[in-house]
């Protein structure tokens, strides 16, 4: 398995995937840096980072996952190397599993990069103009608590005190949730990308999925919509966080296994 994964990494040399991997997180960070630097001041670090996370979870993660899955599959569809790869004395599922592992690895790296670049952008905006400096709310936790009624403890679904006191932890946790709950949509994208030689099909699926996610938010079934699961783990509706995480993660693992079984049986014409 290790050899299969190494081989996939060799194929990424000089490919566009590394560019996508950098561009996705950089664009999210750049957007929020521009907002902050241009005076649309989000004031506190947790607000700033959560806004960035939302953009990542709803838009940039699904989009880049679509592109990465498609590129990984097109590496073989393009030059028609599936036949050679699958005629080697290596279990067929391994070929596809290695690509899935690489996709998950790249998206994990992108998640970390998004967090790091967002933080860097926020810091830079403050350095460029002290008026736009983001503040750390933790020292004011005690003050905030005395000013709040019990009713205020939950603001827009968020536990305000937790966000004020331990915002670093919360942001890191949610970044991880977003990632883990995206397994289902990644598995679906990989499957489509492997199955269809025409790259427009997985691309249309990814773009369509992301588009419908906007409407699915309002639906009671939105909880089951793979492209909405990362967003749902952010906690704007706290009762949905664990469900979205479970559906995305467990569903993703299940879907990946189905994908491996199906792809191993596929006939290569």
């Amino acid at each position: 398995m290790l050899a299969s994964i190494q081989v996939e990494l060799i194929k990424l040399k000089r490919s566009k995937i590394m560019l996508v991997m950098l561009a996705g997180p950089a664009l999210v960070a750049l957007l929020f840096f521009s907002l902050q630097a241009s005076g649309a001041n989000l004031r506190a670090w947790p607000l700033y980072l959560f806004a960035g996370l939302t953009a990542w979870a709803t838009f940039m993660l699904p989009l880049t996952a679509t592109i990465i899955a498609t590129l990984l599959a097109q590496l073989e569809h393009g030059p028609k190397t599936w036949a050679h790869l699958l005629a080697l004395p290596v279990p067929k599922w391994r070929v596809f599993a290695a690509k899935a592992v690489v996709a998950l690895g790249l998206i994990a790296l992108m998640s970390l990069l998004t967090g790091a670049l967002l933080a860097f952008g926020g810091w830079l905006a403050g350095e460029l103009n002290p008026a736009n400096k983001l503040m750390d709310p933790a020292p004011f936790a005690a003050l905030a608590e005395t000013m709040m009624d019990d009713d205020d403890q939950m603001f827009g679904g968020m536990d305000v005190m937790l966000m004020v006191q331990q915002w670093r932890l919360v942001v890191a946790e949610r970044l991880a949730f977003v990632y883990l709950s995206s397994f289902l949509l990644i598995a679906v994208q990989l499957w489509a990308a492997f199955r269809f030689r025409n790259f427009l099909i997985p691309m249309a699926l990814g773009v369509g999925g992301g588009f419908f996610a906007i409407f699915a938010q309002a639906s009671q079934y939105g909880l089951y919509f793979p492209w909405l699961m990362p967003f749902n783990t952010l906690g704007f509706m706290p009762e949905n966080v664990e469900k979205a995480l479970a559906y995305g993660l467990v569903g993703g693992i299940g879907m990946s296994l189905l994908m491996l079984v199906d792809m191993s049986r596929m006939q290569i014409k």
Partner: peptide
């Protein structure tokens, strides 16, 4: 195969290295 299929963006040696690694 009938039409030789290789990874175009890799060198000949890198292409062979891929198969070599898979065959250990």
């Amino acid at each position: 195969f009938e039409t030789p299929a290789h990874y175009e963006h890799l060198t000949g040696r890198e292409n062979l290295d891929i198969t070599r690694r898979l065959l250990k």
